[in-house]
């Protein structure tokens, strides 16, 4: 069972206030989850806590029955949980190939990493084409693909993506989403945080709505998509009172 269980997690940055205020969520294996919610709801914070980049103040996270909260980022990676950060943070002055090689940093086996990279190059031919270019010369979409590919070098059981379509044109975003769909078909557990709620939910099995650091809503993605409250708040149907409020 590759289930990820988040149990009553409280977290925040530095000495700042709690961003997550007792959040609980169970992520079943081989399912795609899309987390939506307003800014400041704690979507990215949740992913950082799971990835081991931020220690929870309270609560516990288990993955495949093993407690992972409090582990370092490399230890979380070792257990099969990869993370694609929102800012597509590549290493700008390394080539695409070097970036992917850094993805296999914890494997300590150069040959295995190179083999995995070759596999990824067949999956992402554009990255093969650009393999010896510096990462900073890639377009936004290519950077996002490289960032996803870097996370896949470890062959994770679960991948967490933070706003993968941020700043991309609709066409490029669509390519990213179809990549995510491919991963999902291959049986990878996916936890997706998405500003573009409609697109995110269309590519997920389960929709989770976060609000003010707690999990306020969790349904099959198709239900969330058709829920009138959600449509009004996050999907931009019925534009009357709330939409004007949003624009302020």
């Amino acid at each position: 069972m590759g289930t990820l269980i988040i149990d009553n997690v409280v977290a925040g940055y530095g000495s700042g206030p709690n961003i997550l205020k007792g959040l609980s969520l169970t992520v079943e294996s081989c399912q795609a989850y899309c987390i939506i919610g307003p800014n400041g709801a704690g979507k990215s914070t949740l992913i950082k806590v799971i990835a081991g980049l931020l220690k929870p103040r309270e609560g516990k996270i288990t993955f495949k029955g093993e407690v992972i909260s409090g582990l370092r980022a490399d230890q979380v990676l070792q257990r099969g949980l990869s993370y694609v950060p929102s800012d597509r943070s590549l290493f700008p002055d390394m080539t695409v190939k070097e970036n992917l090689r850094m993805g296999g940093y914890i494997l300590r086996d150069g040959r295995l990493v190179n083999r995995r990279i070759d596999e990824l190059f067949t999956m992402f031919p554009i990255l093969k084409e650009k393999s010896s270019q510096m990462a900073r010369t890639l377009s936004g979409g290519q950077q996002q693909l490289a960032s996803i590919a870097r996370a896949l070098v470890l062959k994770p059981e679960m991948i967490m993506l933070d706003e993968p379509s941020l700043g991309l044109s609709p066409k490029v975003a669509q390519q990213i989403f179809s990549t995510i769909t491919d991963l999902r078909k291959n049986g990878m557990t996916i936890l997706l945080v998405e500003q573009n709620a409609r697109k995110g939910l269309q590519n997920a099995d389960v929709g989770v709505v976060l609000d003010l650091g707690t999990n306020s809503f969790e349904r099959p993605a198709s239900e969330v998509l058709s829920d009138p409250r959600i449509q009004e708040l996050y999907l931009g149907k019925r534009r009357e009172p709330l939409a004007t409020e949003d624009q302020e």
């Binding site: 990676l77 700008p92 002055d93 390394m94 940093y105």
Partner: peptide, 23 residues
């Protein structure tokens, strides 16, 4: 070298270095 690359990675993007598991 592997460690050398980790040092360069940390110089270029400390956050991303953590994400790929660099201590």
């Amino acid at each position: 070298t592997r460690i050398g690359n980790a040092i360069r990675a940390t110089m270029q993007n400390r956050n991303a270095a953590q994400v790929v598991g660099v201590n």
